[in-house]
């Protein structure tokens, strides 16, 4: 066990860092980022496709910065316009900055698309039997805080006593489609433009309105949708790349997170912080 571990440690420094920096510089210099958000579909597509490398060491494409990733295509969202809203929203939640890439470059929107296409998106392991009691309950279910009382106003649906949170017949995929369309409609209503064309602070204003539950959705609280969006964006940034996000493990690079490893038994008593080149499940499973 320790042999394998030592070998892991011998690998030299991560080359992805350099790529990340040059990409960020490129984006800034070319003005592709409007208000911090990757804009129209064409340019968004360019950004997400052109410079991603594959972390798969066994393929012949290593180092070829222009090979698009074949798995970066929509399998859940049929309408491209819904997906564009998703991209813009996730980038506001987790923007590109000096630490490294944002949600779009990390592939979080494709991660979300894939998650919603699978059993989680259709609530396969959730109890989805009638009756669904609507109207009084707190539906802020994805929020991980212990205290539901602190989870923002729920206007007329606020129940003074918390209840089990998820009480809607919508599954997660359905919530997303409705929520993304509602984000766009809210932008049209407030600013007379599409969500993806709104300024960054306008997009933030809309997202905050959802977060606070100030927007009316059907069958679900806007807060619930927002928390789902927030949770899945962070998952898309930090989950193993096998799920389509965390491209090139750049999410992990920012956090100095090493990915799955066999053992830390020889290092865990160290007084110093140990920075390791990240490894993915692909590496770990061999």
């Amino acid at each position: 066990m320790s042999d394998k571990y030592d070998k892991d440690n011998e690998k030299d420094v991560n080359t992805n860092d350099k790529d990340g920096v040059s990409r960020r510089r490129f984006i800034k210099n070319t003005g592709l980022v409007a208000g911090g958000v990757v804009g129209g579909s064409l340019l968004g597509g360019v950004v997400t496709n052109q410079w991603n490398t594959t972390p798969d060491k066994d393929t012949q494409t290593k180092g070829n910065k222009t090979t698009p990733e074949l798995q970066d295509a929509r399998m859940f969202f049929s309408r491209k316009e819904d997906f564009e809203v998703l991209k813009a929203a996730t980038e506001r939640i987790f923007p590109e900055d000096d630490n490294g890439p944002g949600a779009v470059e990390l592939g979080a929107p494709y991660f979300i698309d894939k998650q919603l296409a699978g059993q989680w998106g259709s609530n396969a392991k959730a109890y989805m039997r009638d009756p669904f009691k609507q109207g009084k309950q707190v539906q802020d279910y994805e929020h991980q805080d212990r205290d539901q009382d602190k989870q923002g106003p729920h206007s007329d649906t606020q129940n003074p006593t918390p209840t089990p949170r998820y009480q809607t017949r919508l599954n997660r995929g359905e919530m997303f489609i409705q929520g993304l369309r509602k984000l766009d409609k809210e932008s049209q209503d407030r600013f007379k433009k599409k969500f993806i064309d709104a300024e960054g602070d306008q997009q933030d204003e809309i997202l905050e309105a959802f977060e606070k539950g100030e927007v009316q959705m059907k069958g679900v609280e806007a807060t619930t949708f927002f928390n789902l969006l927030l949770q899945t964006t962070l998952e898309g940034v930090y989950a193993d790349p096998v799920y389509g996000g965390n491209k090139n493990m750049q999410g992990w690079v920012m956090k100095e997170y090493p990915g799955p490893r066999a053992a830390y038994i020889n290092d865990i008593e160290s007084d110093d912080f140990i920075k390791m080149e990240p490894k993915s499940l692909r590496d770990y499973q061999g």
């Binding site: 609530n123 396969a124 392991k125 959730a126 109890y127 989805m128 039997r129 009691k133 309950q137 279910y141 994805e142 991980q144 006593t161 918390p162 209840t163 089990p164 949170r165 998820y166 009480q167």
Partner: peptide, 26 residues
């Protein structure tokens, strides 16, 4: 546990209607 087959219901007070705990996160 896969809750699609079986879960629990929950409430605070004896006079309330209990609702099912539907997701594995809960």
């Amino acid at each position: 546990q896969n809750l699609s087959h079986e879960t629990i219901t929950s409430r605070n007070e004896i006079n309330e209607t209990a609702l099912p705990v539907r997701t594995q996160g809960e």
